[in-house]
């Protein structure tokens, strides 16, 4: 047929284009952060399959467009020429309806199997309660034998664990997303949501991100997950359950400064204190707003830190300061923080 040479040229272009683009998207582009769960590996593989299916489709469409414009654009003298009155081709139309349909159904089946595998209940699951609130994450590890749960501001997990997250929200919808896990689920007020993660043997620290707009501090609502070897995890568990002691001779204000700047508590994510070197802009600049006001009233400062104060800095909405710190900080830590705030607001 007369189109044969043209079609061969297009097929050649298509094959070369597909090969080049596949090489780029599969081997050159770095799409994902490290994969530290089995779920992550499954998702990455599914994504690769999607790329392998998608690239030929895109290259095919572009090939037809480019070749059509190249070969069939109007030449001088053709201004009054029309094309052939081709209205359709039933066989072709059946093919390009059926083939995509089959392809899509296959992809759905594959994705479904990935989902089933990823969400399957595992033996010996470690339960972690995750609570999202404006604008911080807190984690609670239920303990056996009636012991009180261990609370933390950052997530610590042992390698190879099967984790079952129970996710709660205290106020609005948040989303508990760990990119390195490839897993997220909304934290919804009024219900408990959940997801499962099976860790690999990779250790390291990876970000936890809130992925649903939750208000003013959505940008800063971040935390970290620390994946530790079993021995280190056991060590963390031990000291997490125990109260913090200051190093001997350390002043309360100095301990307070350490706490303020620690990523565990995350104060610096919202508040700027020049002395501490923190630069958060979501909340008030503490040294300024507390200056000369409360530095002689530690009781009120204590209330402010634990979120129980009715004092609202002008220009800021009420009820934004999380109310969790009272339950997570030990009395020593709370006094230390207050001492530090008194010091910087003199």
């Amino acid at each position: 047929m007369r189109d044969r040479r043209l079609i061969l040229q297009m097929v050649a272009f298509f094959l070369v284009g597909t090969a080049v683009l596949l090489f780029i998207v599969l081997d050159v582009v770095h799409w994902f952060p490290p994969a530290v769960t089995t779920q992550a590996k499954n998702v990455d593989r599914l994504y690769d399959v999607m790329l392998i299916v998608s690239v030929p489709i895109f290259v095919g469409v572009v090939t037809v467009i480019l070749f059509s414009v190249w070969k069939f654009h109007m030449r001088p003298g053709q201004e009054n020429l029309d094309g052939p009155p081709i209205h359709g081709n039933t066989r072709l139309e059946v093919v390009w309806t059926a083939v995509p349909a089959l392809l899509l159904m296959s992809l759905c089946i594959y994705a479904f199997t990935v989902l089933q595998t990823d969400e399957k209940k595992q033996p010996n699951e470690m339960i972690v309660d995750v609570t999202g609130q404006q604008f911080t994450w807190t984690f609670s590890y239920p303990q056996p034998n009636g012991k009180p749960p261990i609370k933390a501001f950052e997530l610590y997990l042992p390698t190879n664990a099967h984790v079952y997250f129970r996710i709660h929200s205290k106020d609005v919808i948040h989303s508990f997303w760990i990119p390195a896990f490839r897993l997220q689920e909304d934290a919804v007020p009024g219900i408990t949501t959940s997801y499962r993660a099976t860790l690999t043997s990779t250790t390291g620290t990876y970000p936890i991100v809130c992925a649903v707009l939750c208000g003013l501090g959505h940008t800063a609502m971040r935390s970290d997950v620390h994946i530790l070897a079993p021995a280190q995890f056991a060590a963390w568990e031990k000291q997490a359950g125990a109260p913090v002691a200051a190093t001997p001779g350390e002043s309360p204000a100095s301990l307070g400064k350490q706490l303020f700047t620690s990523s565990t508590l995350g104060c610096g994510g919202c508040h700027t204190i020049a002395d501490a070197g923190t630069t958060g802009t979501i909340g008030p600049r503490l040294a300024q707003v507390l200056k000369g006001r409360f530095h002689k009233a530690p009781f009120i400062l204590r209330q402010i830190v634990t979120g129980g104060s009715s004092y609202v800095v002008p220009g800021y909405p009420a009820n934004v300061m999380p109310k969790t710190f009272g339950s997570v900080l030990t009395p020593t830590e709370l006094s230390a923080l207050v001492a530090y705030l008194q010091k910087v607001s003199k």
Binding site: Y47, M50, F58, C108, S175, W177, L183
Partner: peptide
């Protein structure tokens, strides 16, 4: 291209990762 990223998003495990 937009349709391709849309089909990727239809696959639940991928959407779980990239939602939001």
């Amino acid at each position: 291209l937009g349709g391709i990223s849309g089909v990727m998003l239809a696959m639940i495990p991928i959407d779980i990762h990239v939602s939001g």
